[in-house]
């Protein structure tokens, strides 16, 4: 079983303040650390686990500038055999442009695959669209929000999709297919510095993104950025930590949940 996984380098903004600059034209990410998209980390792990059990190879593909090579090194350290960078200075805001290039790369370079795995979504644009658009474009089956792969059988996967409110559905998906992997499906392995160092000795290939874009223009454009609408918001407790915490306990008493 050969599995291609897409992984993206994203800004880790969870604990960071984001500033819009240039009159709404950009978001300043210059002081923010980058990492592999969390969902893609689970997708790589799931692909590697399957290949370890069933044989075959995992190929990791990423789109971005040379810095995205760190994503390939990480994927290789986790167990991917090959890492391909689709190099571009500016990544399109339209997922359709990215998918066009990816699908052309798969076809033109004859990259064999039984399945393509993506993370459910990226932490930056939260588009959740790469897997679905790619499957539609290739005309192969698709399942998203995959929270469990119950069986890898001759010609198909049995997977569980996460729905809402704790409900899941079990479905059968014919190979070749595209699966979007949900976070929490597995426990991604720890990657050591030594592992990364070893992975950096494995050759990664670089392809020019624009050579595979096939003239696909963006169908949507991001015209400006804005902050979320303020909804009134919380009464912020201020002062010394001790006073704040006593005030908090007072609120709990007032609400009748703590005596």
């Amino acid at each position: 079983m050969n599995i291609v996984v897409f992984a993206k380098r994203v800004a880790a903004t969870q604990e960071e303040e984001l500033r819009i600059t240039g009159d709404g034209k950009a978001v300043d990410l210059s002081k923010i650390p980058f990492k592999m998209n969390d969902w893609d980390n689970y997708a790589v792990e799931e692909a590697v686990k399957i290949v370890e059990a069933k044989g075959g190879t995992v190929t990791a593909i990423t789109i971005g500038n040379q810095d995205s090579d760190e994503i390939l090194r990480r994927a290789i350290a986790m167990g991917a055999k090959d890492g391909f960078l689709m190099e571009t200075v500016e990544v399109s805001d339209d997922p359709a442009v990215r998918v066009e290039a990816i699908s052309n790369l798969l076809n033109k370079e004859n990259i064999p695959f039984d399945a393509v795995f993506t993370g459910v979504q990226a932490e930056d644009d939260q588009f959740a669209a790469t897997g679905g658009i790619l499957a539609g474009k290739l005309g192969i089956p698709y399942a998203s929000m995959v929270i469990g792969i119950d069986a890898v059988e001759e010609g198909h996967f049995i997977v569980r999709r996460e729905l809402e409110g704790g409900l899941q559905e079990r479905i059968k998906v014919k190979i070749p297919c595209v699966l979007s992997i949900q976070s929490g499906i597995n426990e991604p392995r720890y990657v050591s510095i030594m592992g990364i160092r070893k992975a950096s000795k494995v050759e990664r290939k670089t392809f020019k993104f624009n050579d595979y874009r096939a003239g696909q223009e963006a169908m949507i454009e991001l015209v400006r950025w804005s902050y979320p609408e303020k909804k009134g918001g919380a009464k912020i407790l201020t002062g010394e930590m001790d006073g704040i915490c006593r005030e908090l306990l007072g609120i709990l008493k007032e609400k009748g949940v703590y005596q």
Binding site: D94, P95, A96, V99, Q126, F127, A128, A129, G131, G132, I133, L134, A135, G136, K137, L138, G139, Y142, A143, S144, M145, R161, E162, L163, E164, M219, I220, E229
Partner: peptide, 26 residues
């Protein structure tokens, strides 16, 4: 914008070569 809604929408976008914007809140 739900588990199945996004799945249907993105696949349709790929098959019909139509533009897509997900998680629209305004």
């Amino acid at each position: 914008h739900s588990s199945s809604g996004v799945e249907l929408a993105t696949y349709t976008a790929g098959r019909k070569a139509l533009p897509i914007i997900t998680d629209v809140s305004g």
